[in-house]
Design a protein around this nucleic acid. Structure first.
Lengths: 174, 174, 174, 174
DNA sequence: TTTT
DNA sequence: TTTT
C-alpha cells in the first residue's frame, strides 16, 4: 500500500537496565522497557491521579544498540521514534499470542538521551539507520540531527575492506 | 512522571467497516482496524516484497465516534493521532493476556479522512478533544486545526435533540 | 481543505528568559526562542561540526502561558508541539516581510519541561488546550497526557477563587 | 547540543507544479509550495471560516527529488516529514532577510503521495535518505516504510556501474 | 498557489 | 540567545 505511515514517538523513562542479546550471526538486539505517564484530577474527588503506561521497545539498529549499550541505564529519560509492530508467537499451550512492540530499525528510527547521561564526546543522540546487519558507517559532510553517538566506527579512518558492505547493510537497512 | 510523551501517528486504510458499541451509560466506542504497509526489494532475489501491519484503534472520543460512524467505511484512508495503551484481560483459561491499542481519547487525538470520502458539509476531519465525559465547551473565534465541532453537550445525559448540531460543531471542527 | 495536518515537534533549549506580553483585553502571549542543533562529522576534515537552528515559538494558549511564566527560564529544555504559521508584516520602508513561527494555540499544542525544572506538585507538562477565549469545560475523569503542569490551580494551594474557572476554561478548551 | 529534535509533519496540497533546479555540480533541488488549512466556526456570526497556511518545502534529497519530478503535480496531496530551517539572505537593498523552510534532507525525511497519483509500479512513497550528493540506492532486504518508489533510478532503468558509491553518499546523508 |  |  502506498501512502502509509507508522510512527510512534515516546518520551519516557527506562524501567530497567536494557537487555542486549545477539542473534546467531552476531547482530545485537536491545530490549527496553519505557514508561510514559499521564496525570489528571479526578472529577469527583478532585484528587490527582496518575496512570503509567509501559512500552516495549526493540532496537534492531546496530548503531542504536551501541548507544543503548553504552549510555542507556535504568531511569534514563529517552526520546524514541520508531514503528509499531505486532509479533505473533505461541505460548506453552500452543495458543497464538501477540505482542506489540515499538521497533527501532532503519530509517526514521531515533533514540535520543534527554537527561544528559552518557554523553561523552558529543553523543547521546542517534539515528536508527542501519538494518542491523553490519558495521559502522563512517563519515558524511552533511549535518544530521544531533549526535551520532553510538555511531560505530566513527572517525575518518573509514571503513576499510569487506565490512564496507556490511556498513551498507547497517546503515541502509532496506 | 512529568515530561512524558506517548504519541502514535498512522496513515493507513481501514480493513473493515467500523464497529461501534455503546457503554452502559450510552457513550459510544468505535473500533477500527487499520493497515499500514511497507515494501522493499529483496536484496538477494531482487523481488519486491511487502509487509502489512494491522493496528487496532479504539475511539473513546464521542465526537470522533460520530465521525467514524458517519464517514469511515472499509477501505477508507485515515490519518490517526492517538496514544498507545496496553490493556490486560483474561482469556477463557484465566490467563493474563495483553492487547495493545491506539487510543483516541481527549486532547491530542485526531482522526482525519484522507481520501475525500464522507466529506459532506465540509467535514472529514476531526479532533479528539474532549474527554468525552462531560464538559461542554462552546465556541471560539480562533481557528483550530480542522475542527469545528462543538464538543457535545457532553455530560452523560447525552446530547439529545437539538444540540446534536452543537455536538457536531464541537466535535467535527471543520 | 479537509485532511490537512500542520504539526511541528521540537525538543530544544530556551535561549533567553521568555517575554510575556498582554493583549489589550488582557490575554497573555508568550514568546520563546528555542534552539535545536545537529552535529555531524565533516567528510573531508573529519572534524565534528555543529549547526544550530533557532525557532520562534509564540504561545497564545493562556494555560501554556502560565506554564511559561512560572517555569520556563533561559536554558530550559522543552518539548514543544505546535503549528507552523507565517505572519506578514511591513517593515519601516513599507515592504512586506514574513516571519514564520511555531504557534501554540488550542488543541494539539503541547509544552513539556524536560529537565525537571519547575515541577512543583507534579507539574512541568501541559497541554495547549484552550482557545484562550473562554469556553468552560470543567473537569474530567479520564487521564490526560501528563498535564497538570502549569495547570494553574495546580501545584500547591490549588486554584482558589474565581480564576479557577478561567484557568479551567483556558486549559481545558473544549 | 545533544537531545534535540526538529521535526515538521505536514499533510497538504501542492499549490503548483514543483520547480526543480540543479546545483552547479548537478544535484537536483526541488521546491514545493504546500497548503494546509484549518476551518472553524466564528463564535459570533456562526459562520464557517477557513485559514490557509502556505509552506515552502525544499527537497535536497536526490531520491526524493526524483519522486517529486516524476509524480508530484499541482494539486497533489502529500505527507511530508522534514526539518525547519531558517535561511538568511540579503534583499536588493542589502537588508538581512530570513526565510523559513521545511527541508527534506537525509534521514528522517519523508515524502509520501496520499492521493494515489503517480503510483506506477508500487511507488508514491519515499524516504529522504541520501545526502543529496549521489545516485540511487538499489536494494535492501529489510522492509522500509511503504514504497521506495521514486527511489533511485531504482528499478528498471537504474543506475549503473560506479555510481553505486555515490549511492552511498546519497543514502547515507551523514 | 492547493484542496474541500 | 540555548545546550553539549
Amino acid at each position: 500500500m502506498a501512502g502509509s505511515v507508522n510512527k510512534v514517538i515516546l518520551i519516557g523513562n527506562v524501567g530497567a537496565d536494557p537487555e542486549i542479546r545477539r542473534t546467531q550471526d552476531g547482530r545485537p538486539i536491545a530490549n527496553l522497557r519505557i514508561a510514559t505517564s499521564e496525570t489528571w484530577r479526578d472529577r469527583n474527588s478532585g484528587e490527582r491521579r496518575e496512570k503509567t503506561e509501559w512500552h516495549t521497545v526493540v532496537v534492531f539498529s546496530e548503531g542504536l544498540c551501541k548507544v543503548v549499550e553504552q549510555y542507556v541505564k535504568k531511569g534514563a529519560k529517552l526520546y524514541i521514534e520508531g514503528q509499531l509492530q505486532t509479533r505473533k508467537w505461541q505460548d506453552q499451550n500452543g495458543n497464538d499470542r501477540y505482542s506489540t512492540e515499538i521497533v527501532l530499525q532503519g530509517f526514521n528510527s531515533t533514540l535520543t538521551m534527554l537527561d544528559g547521561r552518557g554523553e561523552g564526546g558529543g553523543s547521546g543522540v542517534s539515528r536508527g539507520g542501519g538494518n542491523d546487519y553490519g558495521g559502522g558507517y563512517e563519515d558524511y559532510d552533511q549535518p544530521r540531527q544531533s549526535s551520532g553517538g553510538g555511531r560505530s566506527g566513527g572517525g575518518q579512518g573509514g571503513q576499510s575492506g569487506g565490512n564496507f558492505s556490511r556498513d551498507l547493510d547497517d546503515d541502509i537497512p532496506f
